[in-house]
Simulated assay, not measured.
Amino acid sequence: MNSFNVKPNIYFGQGALEILREILTEKVLIITDPFMVKSGTINRITDNITSKNISVFSDIVPDPPIELVVKGIEELSKIKPDVLIALGGGSAIDAAKAIMDFSKKILSLDHMEFIAIPTTSGTGSEVTSFSVITDKEKGVKYPLVSDDLLPDKAILDPDLVKTVPDFITADTGMDVITHALEAYVSIDATDFSDALAEKALVLSFEYLIKAYKDGSDIEAREKMHNASCLAGIAFNAASLGINHSIAHVLGGKLHVPHGRTNAILLPYVIEYNANIIGYDNKDLSRAAKKYHNIAKLIGLPANNVRMGVKNLIYGIKNLEKSMKMPVNLKEAGVDLDKLKEGREKLAEMALEDGCTKTNPRVPTKDDIIRIIERITM
């Protein structure tokens, strides 16, 4: 028996922030990063809250470390807010999730409401039971997985993403596509997660390049914001695969932005998962057939499975080229000497990552090493 549910109440579209006016409690804590404060974006939140007892914890940094979570718990324990708001990209929301979850367990703050407000269109963290925290000393990213991490409300206001730089739009947009594709071919995929993943992909291939070229295109921004959320719900239900497993270990080691690492890996992971050998279209994998279906959905030539998979890979590469994205780790500015001695260890860590178990093809350590080698060229 399978099940499917969506916990966060989702408010979306222009003006969605007005739902904050319904907050009638006394104490509010906002967890965010310094840029949200410096740019004045945080005022868009506070101006919609009637409470005058608002505190801000703005120490969030990319790839939030364990030490930051501890500091956030200490701050929350002093305030004991009625409402906790996470404002920012994946790092802010992930950190807030960890801070919220540990604080509830330690301080018994079961009454505290948790609201997530994303300011990038990529992670889908506002609707997932995942959080990624980094051990900087070991260079390892640890995924936390629990339904207790799910926010109570998610607010998707496209006005908050209009000023996102084009290169971040590219990185986060490719993260959306990776989330949706991995959820779609996951061994835990269902009709429900497939429907969400398909819609996220159709929206992304239509609107990502528009959002990249013109950040003020509010329709494109709104559609990508929605696509990110849809893909988040899809992978929260179906999980992901080795694209993310490898990206997690490479991100912890090499500090390349997560979405960019996913984008570099994606064509090679699709090719690996599809596993089309020779020119015989018999005995094709389930993943290959599903990639073929996506190629048809987004309007690529796909007269047969082989052509569909091939053109999906080309389509992704062309999209990345149009957004001036690096095609390998060298172009991403990585010192490749750091990888020479550590590939086996990285491959072992990727195999142990929680996302690997739902990949459509069971990888070996050598498979992971070969994929890593291909993205260094």
Rank of each mutant, 00 (worst) to 15 (best):
E18R: 11
E18K: 14
E18P: 00
E18A: 09
E18F: 05
I19H: 02
I19K: 14
I19Q: 01
I19E: 05
L20Q: 04
L20E: 10
L20S: 05
L20R: 01
L20C: 06
L20W: 01
R21H: 06
E22N: 14
E22T: 09
E22I: 05
I23G: 08
I23F: 11
I23P: 05
I23S: 03
L24G: 08
L24N: 15
L24D: 15
T25N: 06
T25E: 13
T25V: 04
E26H: 09
E26W: 11
E26C: 03
E26P: 03
K27E: 01
K27H: 04
V28F: 01
V28W: 01
V28G: 00
V28T: 08
L29W: 04
L29S: 00
L29K: 00
L29R: 02
L29P: 00
I30P: 04
I30C: 11
I30S: 05
I31A: 07
T32K: 01
T32P: 00
T32L: 04
T32F: 05
T32E: 08
T32Q: 04
D33P: 06
P34C: 03
P34S: 12
P34D: 09
P34I: 08
F35G: 02
F35E: 10
F35R: 10
M36T: 12
M36R: 10
M36V: 07
V37E: 11
V37D: 04
V37S: 06
V37H: 10
V37K: 14
K38T: 13
K38Q: 14
K38S: 13
K38C: 06
S39R: 09
S39Q: 13
S39A: 13
S39P: 10
S39K: 07
G40M: 08
G40E: 07
G40V: 06
G40F: 12
T41A: 14
T41Q: 13
T41P: 03
T41V: 15
I42L: 13
I42A: 00
I42E: 06
I42W: 09
N43P: 11
N43C: 09
R44W: 05
I45T: 03
I45L: 13
I45E: 03
T46G: 03
T46H: 09
T46L: 06
D47C: 11
D47R: 14
D47Y: 12
D47T: 09
N48P: 06
N48A: 11
N48I: 05
N48T: 02
I49K: 11
I49Y: 12
I49S: 08
I49H: 10
T50G: 14
T50S: 15
T50C: 12
T50M: 13
T50R: 15
T50E: 15
S51Q: 14
K52V: 07
K52F: 04
K52Q: 14
K52R: 13
K52W: 01
K52E: 10
N53M: 05
N53V: 07
N53R: 13
I54P: 05
I54H: 08
I54A: 10
I54C: 03
S55C: 10
V56Q: 09
V56Y: 04
F57C: 05
F57D: 07
F57V: 02
F57M: 04
F57S: 05
F57P: 03
F57H: 13
S58L: 04
S58A: 15
S58Q: 06
S58G: 11
D59K: 15
D59G: 08
D59A: 14
D59Q: 12
D59S: 07
